[in-house]
Nucleic acid binder design. Structure first.
Lengths: 202, 202
DNA sequence: TGCAAAGCGGACCCCGGGTCCGTATCGTCA
DNA sequence: TGACGATACGGACCCGGGGTCCGCTTTGCA
């Protein structure tokens, strides 16, 4: 079971590739005209190395994505409110969605590249299933909320990378504005506060 | 302005290609492993003809899509309620979304192929802008509904082709169930019926 | 019936993802 | 420290699909 540890040049190269790819996706315009050869060149390694380390294009993107997502994931799983698990559901749902939105706003090109580069639908992706599973669970803790499964999908759909990129890019919708709109939308979906007194929030 | 009419063999070939592509996309499994050469072969024409008639891959997909969408478009623009323009907004919004959903359920592979085959984000596509524009307009006729623009995007996002395909395919969510869930979701977004009695419109 | 113009089609090009294998590096054991 | 197997390197190479090009055919107008 213990993964045999990789040789240190391999490890170093892996990091070099991640860093180079990160930089490339951050700077360049369209994600899809960053070629694997580009990444290899920028990292100063051969294509062989790149493919051995990550398998294929989606593999590289996934690795990058997971790396960037790590902080958010931690904040969600073990952090303090409003993201962490101690938060009451009605506050946590919008917080989670806001976190996803912000993440996509900050990592637009990458998320886009990942969703595009296929390997089938994005819905198979492990990270999507994690978000969906969590959101669903939280939703189902809210009384009066049925079909948490579909609702989770629908809410997450509102934060799709290409939609976010389009709104921010072509429509010039400012960041804060978008966050506000999403929050409002979410609020409507969650419905009015529960009848027996509003979560007397401090 | 007057488009010089095409030679009749050209017209015939164009139809042949549309028909062949239609059939291919309907039958075959994954949209992305239908190649342009396949389509050309199935239609009994050369690749040159195909590309002259439709420009490029997205062009062909778009043409197919528009053709299939035509009946729906007509029902929406000039048809009777609940889709047509005479419908009161609160009924029309869910009807529109249901129509979109059903369309995607019936034309899954094609819609998928179109959204994937890129040419940038799907949000630039003319047909998306039409749906969004219409939905937005209708939404804004509902009192108490702000930010119709974002809401329209978010609602449409819940009917994205790949999501629908995923739910129908992997999750085995039955058609009617999905329609019901979407309807319920929509209802929550629209909020409770207006307080001063139902649509006292004169 | 003759003759442009419009259209045809498939050989061809390009480019990007992915592979292969001879060579260089690592790290271990003596 | 020297030597040798295992591991990794890297870029030449392959393959498949989108898109183009151009000599040949068909159309349709006079």
């Amino acid at each position: 079971m213990a993964e045999r540890k990789p040789r240190k040049d391999a490890a170093r190269n892996r990091e070099a590739v991640l860093a180079a790819a990160d930089a490339l996706f951050a700077r360049r315009g369209s994600p899809e005209d960053i070629t694997m050869a580009d990444v290899a060149a920028a990292a100063g390694v051969g294509k062989g190395t790149l493919f051995r380390a990550f398998g294929d294009r989606p593999g590289l993107l996934r690795a990058l994505y997971e790396a960037r997502l790590e902080p958010v994931r931690e904040a969600v799983e073990t952090g303090p409110p409003p993201l962490g698990p101690a938060t009451p559901p009605r506050q946590r749902v919008p917080a989670l969605l806001d976190a996803v939105l912000c993440f996509k706003l900050d990592n637009g090109r990458l998320a886009l590249a990942l969703e595009e580069s296929g390997s089938g639908s994005p819905y198979q992706a492990e990270h999507y299933r994690r978000w969906h599973g969590l959101l669903r669970t939280v939703l189902e803790q809210i009384p009066g909320l049925t079909d948490g499964d579909f609702t989770a999908h629908a809410l997450l759909a509102a934060t799709r990378a290409d939609l976010v990129a389009y709104l921010a890019g072509q429509e010039r919708l400012p960041r804060e504005r978008m966050r506000a709109e999403l929050a409002q939308f979410t609020a409507r979906v969650l419905g009015p506060d529960s009848p027996q007194g509003p979560t007397v929030e401090g």
